[in-house]
C-alpha cells in the first residue's frame, strides 16, 4: 500500500498492491442524454437485491428517491429550471435536467481510508467495495465520504454502496445500471478511454453552443485524485447535489496527527505541571 493520501496516482490498483492489475474500470455518466427513466436505479436494485427505500412522495419533481444511500446505489436527480416565458413561445426556457448519480470510486477514497476494519477495500479494477462480512457498522465511512454516498442501512447495521458490480465486471459483464441504460448515458469501460470519450463529447457540445456543459470528477488533479465515476454536467455541480470541489479528508491527516500529538503532549505536560508542588 502506498502512503500517498492525495494527488494524482499513476495506477491506483498497483498503488493498492496489485501486481499487474487490469485497466482501471470506470463510469462516464453523460447527463446530457439522460432521459430520467430510472432503469439504472431499478436494474441496480434487481441485480444487487437491495431492499426498497420507502414509499414517500417528496415533491421534488420526479425524484422520490432523494439521494444515494444504503439502499439506493444509483440515484437519478431531476432538476426543473425555467426562465420567464412568453405565451406561445413554446416552452420558453424550461430545462429539465436529469442525472444519474453513483459512488465516485475515488482515486483517494476517504471511505476506504478511514474504514477501521478493512471492510472497504480497493479491488483489482481500482474500484472501492465494502466486504459485507467484515463491516461492523462503525459508520466512519459515512461521515468521511465527501460526496455523501455511502450510508449505513438501519436494521441491517452495515454500510452499503455501489460495488461497480464487482461480481459482474469480474466476469467480463457490464454493470447492471450501464447495461440497462437505454441512451448510453451511463458508459462503462476502461477509465482512460472514457476520459477521452468524455472530452470529445464535451467538445461536441461546446461546438453545438452548449457552453454550460462541463466535466465533473474527470480531473486527476482534483481533491480526490479524480473519480473512477465521473460525469458530464449541464450546470454547476451543486445544482445536482454534488460538492463543487470535494477534497479527500485524509489529505489533512498528517497535519491532524501533528496537532493531536501536540495536544497529547500538552495534556501530558499539564498533568506533569500539576504535580509540581507539594499539595
Amino acid at each position: 500500500m502506498s502512503d500517498s493520501l492525495y494527488g494524482p496516482l499513476h495506477d491506483v490498483a498497483e498503488d493498492a498492491g496489485y501486481a499487474d492489475p487490469p485497466a482501471r474500470a470506470g463510469f462516464f455518466t453523460d447527463t446530457s442524454v439522460c432521459i430520467g427513466c430510472k432503469a439504472c436505479e431499478v436494474a441496480c436494485k434487481e441485480w444487487n437485491a437491495i431492499p426498497d427505500d420507502g414509499f414517500a412522495l417528496t415533491g421534488m419533481s420526479y425524484d422520490n428517491t432523494g439521494q444515494l444511500g444504503a439502499s439506493t446505489w444509483r440515484h437519478v436527480a431531476f432538476i426543473e429550471q425555467s426562465r420567464p416565458r412568453e405565451v406561445g413561445d413554446g416552452d420558453g426556457g424550461t430545462r429539465w435536467l436529469m442525472a444519474s448519480d453513483v459512488c465516485k470510486h475515488c482515486t483517494h477514497a476517504a471511505c476506504l481510508d478511514v474504514c477501521p476494519t478493512g471492510a472497504l477495500f480497493r479491488t483489482e479494477f481500482a474500484t472501492v467495495v465494502v466486504q459485507q462480512d467484515v463491516c461492523n457498522g462503525c459508520a466512519y465511512c459515512v461521515s468521511a465520504c465527501p460526496y455523501g454516498v455511502i450510508d449505513r442501512r438501519e436494521g441491517d447495521g452495515r454500510a452499503w454502496k455501489c460495488t461497480m458490480c464487482y461480481d459482474r465486471i469480474g466476469d467480463g459483464m457490464e454493470p447492471a445500471c450501464a447495461k440497462a441504460c437505454p441512451t448510453d448515458s451511463i458508459q462503462y469501460g476502461p477509465l482512460d478511454e472514457l476520459r477521452e470519450r468524455a472530452r470529445a463529447r464535451l467538445d461536441e457540445l461546446h461546438a453545438e453552443g452548449v457552453a454550460e456543459a462541463r466535466l465533473y470528477g474527470e480531473d486527476e488533479n482534483d481533491g480526490v485524485g479524480g473519480d473512477g465515476a465521473f460525469f458530464l454536467l449541464l450546470d454547476e455541480p451543486e445544482t445536482y447535489g454534488l460538492p463543487p470541489d470535494p477534497v479527500v479528508t485524509t489529505r489533512d491527516l498528517p497535519a491532524m496527527w501533528k496537532w493531536a500529538g501536540g495536544a497529547a503532549a500538552a495534556l501530558a505536560g499539564c498533568v506533569a505541571v500539576s504535580f509540581l508542588g507539594r499539595r
Binding site: 436505479e41 434487481e46 420507502g54 414509499f55 412522495l57
Partner: peptide
Amino acid sequence: LPYLSELQPEMF
C-alpha cells in the same frame, strides 16, 4: 412491485 412503487409512490 416495491422497486417501481418507491419511484412514484403516490397519485399526484
